[in-house]
Design a binder for these strands. Structure first.
Lengths: 387, 387
DNA sequence: CTGTTAGCGCCTTCAG
DNA sequence: CTGAAGGCGCTAACAG
């Protein structure tokens, strides 16, 4: 059928006007305007021919794409996919196409995508996901040489760009790339926590965790442990810090031993909780406690669910033997049983907000979203108890 | 700093060669080759200048983008986000940029995206998500006029294109659009079930459900109900059909009354299960059963979890009062308790497969993925029972 | 208000 | 094997 796409000039010819007029009629060029009847004719012709503009051509002529870059750590993670849903919605509203990058936690890849976005002249870019402190992430393969195979080096694919960025990019490289992107006229928005002075939808991780701690304390809990996520993970660190700080203030400090480092994943939560249980059982001798904490706070829901599984697998019960709390209020996890106490973050809205921020609607460059504590059955009120 | 992006000609000048040579050196033009030392010089210059090609320009010159379109119903749904993760991985491997479209169940939007992809000359497009039978989905607003506001009609944004496609596109329009896309040289892959003769990663929904039914029957279950999803939803219908057919064969047919239509969502599962319970309670008089079925099969995990919540909210227990089974084996839901019996579909792999199919690696145009029954605690073996 | 004319950055025939 | 020249589809100065 209609093999070769219809071009604007075909439309112009069909309508009996010049190319320029057709262009103006169709996109309503900023300053110029077109006589009503001509416009009608052009529009009519375009409809008849089923014309639709070529984004690449427009991008080239305008020096600006209609693309919105979204980079997340892992699109399969409900935290990110919910944000992505918000971004997708807002982007569609703005008439933008979203290009998705799932970096699988490689900061090199992240950097490569930001650079790609700049090169591609994306309209804006949104970076979601807990920034890692300098350290860097590094891929699984340590690809030794900088430019190993064939015609690498200067590549035209995101892939190879990521590959030869090496195991971990220098700290600051991301910020620099983002700044360059912005200076080139692109919009930027971060989700989570700030980098430099870039626009950001901040999630009040520390405050939310502190609120949670207070609510739990008020419920009668006194002895806590924290599954704190990996070292160098900002989001995890902020949640941990907010939680422990609030407890310290309340006179129920968390012992350093009871703050366990672990991956930011379901398995991380599972394993850490299992360790905690083994320790309480005396299976791992030489440890302090000897008994389980009353409540375990996992710094995200997915970890919390892993932790609950570990409790069950050990033949124990949540909340009878240990209470568990999480963070995020992942929608898909709202029906776990017992219901998981958590801090609700309106992730989809966060995505929409970030999009609007990146697009520069509204002046503020910084929005904060504060979570709301949601108490459920995984942390019932404790019966009064003597010191 | 480096404000205006570096262009190929700058690289060429820097290397002291012509534009053409630089181009050939960098992308290794099919037929032509370049002397080794010149190539080195060009590559070196490119590196020094941090050159990277402009995708739009390449797209225009080559008449083909480096974009891979992925359209899903709802990226926040773990089913789709897991597929998306697979697609993202495979796309990166292939050096493609994925552009994401979350249609929010509007078939008009779906169609619009396919057309956009064609216009944009995307390399390939992947359509995931249960095709709806003709009926069409329709947005929430019934946008009356075909071309209502201002300069609509011929639009340059996916948004407006979707808007004026009206509530529901004619059946076959999608297939036609897909065919046109393919004829224009783009790759296509469907996920779920076939449309016409297009390449597809089929998910053996009926077979998987039948396997599940047999396993459950073997476990001693005899009286079933099905939360069947909405009318006209292919995936839902196939699962329901496979399940009921297998049971009929085994001599435990499911009464039509016990096949409940409901939305394909958590709330759909919740509500339908609640209805089932009320019915059993006699709260809704004039109904047949009077007692709960032994097992309720929800056609996807998310619905199943909603159903489990309804059971709990009614003060009943899974599996003591009713057993529950789902479909998909959503990763995030693997830790619900009791563990949910389901049919595991390797969703991420499905995404990768679809990508490869769409890219035309390998000749076959059709791959089938069969799920694997996973029995968990939500459907324990039933004690032997008299007729 | 409309039409003509240059490019945008790159690839790809063409000559040399 | 290399360089020069044209064009992809569209927009944005320019004239008219």
């Amino acid at each position: 059928m209609s093999d070769a796409p219809v071009t604007l000039s075909q439309v112009a010819r069909e309508a009996g006007v010049s190319l320029a007029t057709a262009s103006r009629a169709i996109n309503g060029s900023a300053t110029r305007s077109v006589r009503e009847d001509l416009r009608e004719r052009v529009l009519e012709a375009a409809r008849r021919l089923a014309y639709s503009p070529d984004p690449s051509a427009q991008a080239m002529a305008r020096g600006r794409t209609t693309a919105l870059g979204l980079v997340v750590h892992d699109i399969a993670d409900p935290y990110f996919s919910t944000i992505a849903a918000g971004v997708a919605r807002a982007a569609e509203r703005a008439g933008l196409i979203v290009t998705l990058a799932s970096t699988e936690h490689s900061s090199a890849r992240e950097l490569a995508f930001v650079e790609l976005a700049r090169r591609q002249r994306s309209r804006a870019i949104i970076l979601a996901g807990g920034r890692l402190e300098p350290e860097g992430a590094g891929g699984s393969d340590g690809g030794s040489g900088a430019d190993a195979p064939g015609a690498a080096g200067v590549s035209q694919t995101a892939t190879s760009a990521a590959d030869d960025a090496g195991p971990a990019s220098e700290p600051g490289a991301l910020e620099a790339a983002l700044n360059a992107f912005q200076e080139a006229g692109g919009g930027v928005a971060l989700v989570g926590q700030a980098i430099g002075g870039l626009p950001v939808v901040e999630i009040a991780n520390a405050d939310g965790a502190a609120d949670l701690a207070r609510a739990l304390h008020e419920h009668g809990y006194r002895r806590f442990a924290v599954l704190a996520g990996p070292d160098g993970h900002r989001t995890a660190a902020d949640r941990t810090a907010g939680f422990t700080a609030a407890l310290a203030e309340l006179g129920s400090p968390v012992a350093p031993d009871d703050v366990l480092t672990c991956p930011f994943t379901r398995d991380g939560g599972y394993t850490a909780m299992r360790d905690l249980i083994e320790r309480a059982d005396g299976a791992t001798p030489g440890e302090s406690t000897g008994r389980l904490p009353e409540l375990v706070f996992a710094v995200n829901d997915v970890m919390a669910v892993g932790a609950m599984a570990a409790v069950r697998d050990a033949g124990l019960s949540v909340p009878d033997d240990v209470a568990v709390a999480g963070f995020d209020d992942i929608h898909t996890l709202r029906d776990v049983s017992p219901g998981l106490t958590t801090v609700r973050i309106p992730l989809a809205e966060v995505g929409e907000l970030a999009t609007e921020l990146a697009l520069g609607r509204g002046e503020q460059k910084r929005t904060a979203v504060r979570g709301e504590v949601v108490l459920r059955d995984s942390t019932p009120r404790r019966p009064a108890e003597g010191a």
